[in-house]
Amino acid sequence: MRRAGEALGQVAALVAVLLLAGPAAAEARGAGDGEALFRACRGCHELGEGARHGIGPHLDGLFGRIAGSLEGYRYSSAMGRVGEAGLVWDAATLDRYLEKPQAFVPGTRMSYRGMPGEQDRAALIAWLEAATAEAPADNPAVASLPRPEIAAATLEIEGDPAYGEYLAGECVTCHQPSGRADGIPSIVGWPRDAFVRALFEYKTNVRSHQVMRMVTGNLGNEEIAALAAYFGQLSPQ
């Protein structure tokens, strides 16, 4: 009996330690998870010193910003409307948006389907709030400059939008020309270098997608430059 009592006492003590350590451990774990979760966002959004607009707007000074308000980025009309209606990004609005972007802002260009885990969203938002607070709020970002190490020859070509429109028939069977992203990523209004780089990554199997590999395999430099010019000039609806 005495041994059983001692064992129960040890268990109770251990539980007490875990309860006391719980919030701190969760906080530390959440901060780490938030940074790891943001890796999935980096393909579209830049953050920190030198951040520029890419497929998505930069995130410097995100908290307290009116939605759809950054200079130099072509937002969807849906994001512009909610910003004009007074939507401001904070922990609560970001939580709702990240849970299911298309439900919170119908017609948004963001093709991300959503983050269902409440704890994951909380961790990501907490990390973002700390990271964006350290970044300059008045970052005068413009469209990202071409990166010469990727598809340099194509990036030097001035694409013909009219030729791109002719070639785009195959693209718009999947990607909506309106810029909506109902399960398939929007490619309307992308910066030229991001568009060209993405096609070359599919072409060389850096990005693995069987259909895109087949489509891009038949495209030369002139065709890719023309498609980038055409889709880049379209305004998302």
Rank of each mutant, 00 (worst) to 15 (best):
138 D>M: 09
139 N>G: 11
140 P>K: 10
141 A>R: 09
143 A>F: 03
144 S>D: 08
145 L>R: 13
145 L>V: 10
145 L>N: 08
146 P>D: 05
147 R>L: 01
147 R>Q: 06
148 P>H: 00
148 P>V: 01
149 E>S: 12
150 I>S: 10
151 A>L: 03
153 A>D: 08
158 E>N: 13
158 E>R: 15
160 D>L: 08
161 P>L: 04
161 P>M: 06
162 A>N: 06
163 Y>R: 14
163 Y>H: 11
164 G>R: 02
166 Y>T: 15
168 A>T: 08
170 E>A: 15
171 C>D: 02
173 T>H: 09
174 C>M: 13
174 C>E: 10
175 H>D: 09
175 H>N: 07
175 H>R: 10
176 Q>L: 05
178 S>T: 15
181 A>G: 06
182 D>L: 12
182 D>P: 04
187 I>C: 03
190 W>G: 01
191 P>M: 04
192 R>W: 04
194 A>E: 05
194 A>K: 05
194 A>S: 07
195 F>T: 05
196 V>S: 06
196 V>Y: 02
198 A>T: 12
199 L>P: 04
200 F>D: 05
202 Y>G: 01
206 V>Q: 14
206 V>S: 09
206 V>C: 00
207 R>A: 14
210 Q>V: 14
211 V>C: 06
216 T>M: 15
216 T>R: 13
216 T>I: 12
217 G>I: 12
218 N>R: 15
219 L>R: 04
219 L>Q: 02
220 G>K: 13
220 G>L: 12
221 N>M: 11
221 N>D: 15
222 E>I: 05
224 I>T: 03
224 I>N: 02
226 A>R: 03
227 L>S: 01
228 A>H: 00
230 Y>D: 04
231 F>Q: 02
232 G>W: 03
234 L>V: 03
235 S>G: 13
237 Q>F: 14
237 Q>M: 15
237 Q>A: 15
237 Q>V: 14
